[in-house]
Design a protein around this nucleic acid. Sequence first.
DNA 1: CAAATTTTTTACCAACTGGTATAATAATAA
DNA 2: TTATTATTATACCAGTTGGTAAAAAATTTG
Lengths: 210, 210
Amino acid sequence: MSEIKRGRGRPSKFDAETSLQVAMHLFWSHGYEGTSMTELTEAMSINKPSLYAAFGSKENLFHKAVEHYLAGPVAFIDAALQEKTAYEVVEKLLLDSAACLVHPDNPKGCMVLMGSLNCGKEAEAIKQEMIVRRQDYEQALKQRFILAQEQGDLSQDAAVDTLAKYVVTMHQGMSVQAVNGASRAELESLANLVLQHWPVNQQSANQTAS
Amino acid sequence: MSEIKRGRGRPSKFDAETSLQVAMHLFWSHGYEGTSMTELTEAMSINKPSLYAAFGSKENLFHKAVEHYLAGPVAFIDAALQEKTAYEVVEKLLLDSAACLVHPDNPKGCMVLMGSLNCGKEAEAIKQEMIVRRQDYEQALKQRFILAQEQGDLSQDAAVDTLAKYVVTMHQGMSVQAVNGASRAELESLANLVLQHWPVNQQSANQTAS
DNA sequence: CAAATTTTTTACCAACTGGTATAATAATAA
DNA sequence: TTATTATTATACCAGTTGGTAAAAAATTTG
């Protein structure tokens, strides 16, 4: 994978993947508006025209950085949704989140929240995009809970809307806690509190290997 | 309080209290960095030198706006802490919050969160101040729970640290939900979910000191 | 009236914002 | 070697940022 046939012109001296990683970290740390093009180019060690040639605009670079984030640091979310039972979904979701939100290699909190929770009107589009991503996340979780009801590992009485919103709310609140300085253990305590009260279906003791 | 003896010079044509209200709303909506001095002066209908004479700096204006916020829209928080039992404290806290976070007259979410969850390095001091305010809030709630244990309306086994962090986390997560577009009813459902599982002291109905 | 005082107004500042035109440079293809 | 091509580097753009100096206006005091 290192032997790439080079094109005709001057060879580019930066790797797009690596640059994206740097951009992701900056946007994750300081948000969309809080990160300037100058900071980005300096951290990437490239100059602005190169950055614009490679990514088009600041907004587009942010989009790419968010995709990089979803496919990387929080890939466990999609994995969690595929766990066997609703309980295990929530368990993996919140415990892995606890680890990720305060991981020493990462900026604190969730990028989809930190990216632009609040912003000036110039970044309104970015803010809306982040909102949609969070709504989609909640919807996916709700659908997973509906499936769990069909499969019998979640009580039919459970209000899946509220339950999904509850888990997402805790996840997002834990992001704020991470920024506030909470430790991994503290976040895990919160996760366990949610799990303690989880409305498992009483009658179906699902006997999958443990 | 309307008959103020005017000083010697030209009368100022703006009311500091009203201006602060306007500033509060702008900072609340778009955060510290997302609100420019030009937006502020235009919304207040005053020019910059007047604003600087009255409030010193953008940072100081923000401080004043936050104090205005704490004493106004979220004054119910201090009131909630004085309810009779821990259960009632949490009940008032979360239900009043649900109403406030999506009240049509207010920007969505909590100002102490929206003010500057994420920001560039120039606003780092503001961000830290908001963090401290959130930590203090959590501490106050924890102390209230300790008092509740002494008064007997909260189980001695309850982990007051985790419990306080849990309620605050839900509160902050509900702020994000408000931004995402959640309704008051949806936020109240979340609040009720927390209350359902509240660890009331089994043996004591209500008796004072131990 | 005129002096004194306080505010408003206008104009301005250097630094920074996202974004780009132009030219120099380094590779390949002929 | 000489074009051709793609990327880098330099310099620059108009607009905005937080903040201010200086003058003009409106009031009270003498």
